[in-house]
């Protein structure tokens, strides 16, 4: 785990994600208000905060799914809007129609469409990347299955494989552990840590502070505004958590904390 204080990993290398003075509002209420954040490259970073803190909104704003009132977002030094090929995004899974007629392999192939071109046939190398990605998450025996025939953890693996097949240096995952058990969560985290060790930046929206402390090396603590952003040991101090969760410590008890937000 990194405990260094200097947020820039190496001079000259742009941070994986930098957000400056970002404000986003739904209807009339600001969800993100003048947010600043910086996540250096090569980290396994968590975005933490109570419900309604704007965690998912932040990710959506980065990939352009959510309009922005004002502010600047850069990915590896490029404006986010022109850096979509550097980002692999795994949306929340609650809106997926699990009965949709599509197989594991087809889902992962979607990750290659952008670089291959939307009309051209997938090349042999694309197929290799797809096969490798599926293999990497241990889903090879299931590649011909319709996605509804998988367990919760396996479904999440498929979407991680799709992100992997995009071969982007920055991965954004929105609540990837929702609805999976502790054992699966731990296995998925191993997978993500592996991606980090290969030099990727993995940014995960999560709400379990204990897991973040144990497994992540960077945290952005958010509650409409940035509460803290830095190495886990510093950013998740008791004082910061109290500020983010309004007096209720989020430690090990995210449910207890959420009623405040």
């Amino acid at each position: 785990m990194s405990t260094e204080t200097d947020p820039v990993a190496s001079p000259g290398q742009a941070p994986a994600l930098e957000v400056e003075r970002l404000t986003v509002s739904y209807s009339s209420r600001p969800v993100l208000w003048d947010v600043d954040a910086r996540i250096p490259a090569g980290r396994l970073a968590a975005v933490v905060g109570p419900n309604g803190a704007g965690k998912s909104t932040l990710l959506k704003a980065v990939v352009g799914l959510q309009g922005v009132d004002t502010g600047r977002i850069t990915v590896e030094g490029f404006p986010a809007s022109s850096a979509l090929d550097r980002i692999a995004y795994v949306p929340q899974r609650d809106e997926v129609d699990w009965d949709f007629p599509i197989t594991v392999e087809e889902v992962v192939e979607m990750g290659r469409y952008r670089s291959t071109g939307w009309i051209r046939r997938l090349r042999a190398e694309d197929r290799d990347i797809v096969a490798d990605s599926i293999d990497r998450v241990g889903m090879t025996p299931f590649r011909k299955r319709q996605i509804g025939e998988l367990s919760g953890g396996q479904r999440q693996r498929v979407f991680i494989a799709r992100a992997l097949s995009q071969q982007a240096p920055v991965m954004l995952l929105d609540e990837p552990f929702a609805g999976v058990d502790a054992r699966t969560e731990s296995a998925l985290l191993d997978l993500l840590a592996g991606f980090r060790d290969e030099g990727r930046t993995v940014i995960v929206v999560h709400h379990d502070i204990a897991t973040v402390r144990a497994r992540f090396d960077w945290a952005l603590l958010l509650n409409v505004r940035t509460v803290a952003c830095g190495p886990v040991a510093e950013s998740l101090s008791d004082r910061n958590l109290r500020r983010a969760y309004g007096g209720v410590s989020g430690e090990g008890d995210p449910e207890g904390a959420t009623w405040i937000g």
Partner: peptide, 22 residues
């Protein structure tokens, strides 16, 4: 037939489709 892949992607996962610039 021509736009099969973009359509398939959007149909299955609109958020993902947006994130890859569709």
């Amino acid at each position: 037939a021509l736009a099969f892949r973009p359509l398939k992607t959007a149909l299955f996962d609109m958020a993902f489709a947006g994130s890859v610039g569709l």
